[in-house]
Amino acid sequence: MAALVQILLRNPGDGLALALNRQVALPRTRMLVAGLCGAMAWGAAMGSHVGRAHVWITTIKMPLMLLGTLTLCFPLMQLTVAVARLPLRLHQTLTIGLGGVAVFATCLGALAPVLALFAATAPIPSMASYLNLYLLCAACGVGAGLYSLRALVYGLRAAAPGTKTGWVIAAWALLYQFTGAQAAWVLRPWIGSSYGVDGYWNLQRGLSGNFYLGVGRVFLRWLAEIGVLS
């Protein structure tokens, strides 16, 4: 597993070509395991701010979120491939998608010890540290997302050489981000409430809520706070 991930990180084109041509045994399983390990490490780091049972819950939730988002997006990803007339079969699209998730999760996993240190030592309860940690997570997520995007670009080029894949990548990234944000929203809390350490799990809310409406409400409140809206 480590060797495939190493190649995937250093040279995603070669790594995904190896996986697509099945030159390594069980390539998708290896990438899945790498993705799970990285996501679990990142989840544990996020949960370490509140600690106790929250660590275990976020450790489980993070891989669920990443792989659940991939599962939800997969049909539409394959549809875009078909519309773009790329010669990709289902298993090839799945391999490239899993490669992207593996790179994303590995990057997050590599940064997990740093996040864990700051999460575990940040003051609690404190809204400032809560927001700072979210900012740190978002910055790490953007960085990891860019590398993951690079892996997708090289993967599609390896699978369909000589074809234009730019808008397919853009559609995949937009779709994954759009769905992933909502998945993260319904599975919240991640870092955990700074003001109440109880209520680790929000299933009692029935996985409800909408990320985009939530962001909109916060934006409107901010506009009201600064006096733009009455």
């Binding site: 990180l9 250093r10 790179v103 990057c107 996993g109 590599a110 010890p113 864990a116 240190l117």
Partner: peptide
């Protein structure tokens, strides 16, 4: 050192280091 080792290794690998 231990906390920063994974990020050193992974991000150098991502930039193609050997």
């Amino acid at each position: 050192c231990a906390i920063c080792l994974p990020s050193f290794h992974v991000f150098n690998a991502l930039m193609g280091a050997r």
